[in-house]
Design a protein around this nucleic acid. Sequence first.
DNA 1: GGTATATCGATAATCTATTATCGATATACC
DNA 2: GGTATATCGATAATAGATTATCGATATACC
Lengths: 214, 214
Amino acid sequence: MAKAISMQTLQRLPLYLQHLRALPSEKEKNISAKALGNALGFGEIQVRKDLSSVSDGGKPKVGYCTKELIRDIEGYLGYDNVNDAILVGAGKLGKALLSYQGFRAYGLNIVAGFDCDSEICGADDSGKQILPLSKMENLCKRMKIELGIITVPASEAQKVCDSLVASGIKAIWNFAPIHLIVPKDVILKNENIAASLAVLSKNLSQKESLLQQI
Amino acid sequence: MAKAISMQTLQRLPLYLQHLRALPSEKEKNISAKALGNALGFGEIQVRKDLSSVSDGGKPKVGYCTKELIRDIEGYLGYDNVNDAILVGAGKLGKALLSYQGFRAYGLNIVAGFDCDSEICGADDSGKQILPLSKMENLCKRMKIELGIITVPASEAQKVCDSLVASGIKAIWNFAPIHLIVPKDVILKNENIAASLAVLSKNLSQKESLLQQI
DNA sequence: GGTATATCGATAATCTATTATCGATATACC
DNA sequence: GGTATATCGATAATAGATTATCGATATACC
């Protein structure tokens, strides 16, 4: 446990967690790498390797203790302590994210939304406040927010990104379809809807489906 | 051109396309692999390699012809002929996708939305119809729809997935946070918001940011 | 026209990720 | 208690992706 971890493994961990959490806690006290892999479409060796980076191991003939595994993955991913975030761009997508309750399970708490359009400011029906952009920097600094979510149109995204950086944000989750420029010490993660679509589109157009396992 | 292509390359192609399309068409008649790479944060060799799979090549000292490149990538990804799709689950996220105009640029046309809640059926403010689930199968078959988008809660997703398959859908784009089981001949692409979040969350919690280049 | 240079493409080398092999061990059953 | 079996972890082998090297070529400039 606590080894170096690969990008690929890191991205599979939430999937394991998702599945483990959904198991009936009474019945499935233990789970084998094989069972977990089958459920998610991975090979058992990969599952074992992935889990070896975060858990201190299963027992032969028994498997892993479900509860411990959940705790270990949550701990590793930092889901056990909450990350506050703000969101900029309260359009349809922004509002969808603002009102999504599921983020809590991933340790994410969106504190408020911001938008340049003062018309839509006020309390959203999600219960979250939508505030004018002018108040963003102050709130971020005051609450020491480190994570910013960008859901504005591509044309506005770089500008918004720059103000987030100026507000002391350390990580940006970008939903705008554009490549943003950030300082080296700021983490950027693009949510790349077009890339997913490309995979689908390509596979559909050449029916042979040569690339299963997506 | 027209070689075998890797998953990774396939997913970068839309990013190149995005950037190329945004260039002022008059000024940038040609573009070098280096310039394209710099703009997107990739190495020039990677750009060349990626492009070699879809384009019939640039010219030394000149670079690639922007217009041709756009055409080649679009052609390769199948963005030049439209894919009709339906969407199931007209909640906030579903409506956000229904009203997103940007999909047209990727050759995606969402024909209609479906929802089990008859309250929200009717014309959405995006202009798209939201229809009761009972009409889905018939419409899919009649219009020979091949692509289905799932934006229902996790608890409903497998059921919806099964009806999509029964309706003749050949590819599924799943936004529900759950692993779906599909027949081998159906392509499944999960939009994995939790995985992205994991990368961010992990990087934030260990500030060293050992994994740049996301 | 000749030379310098930016850029290309192909091949090779490195790095990363996945899959296979094998010995070890905890439980179940006789 | 002894043996069979499911499962584990570690190491080795394979496959896949990225990065480096190098020779070739199109344009620019003298």
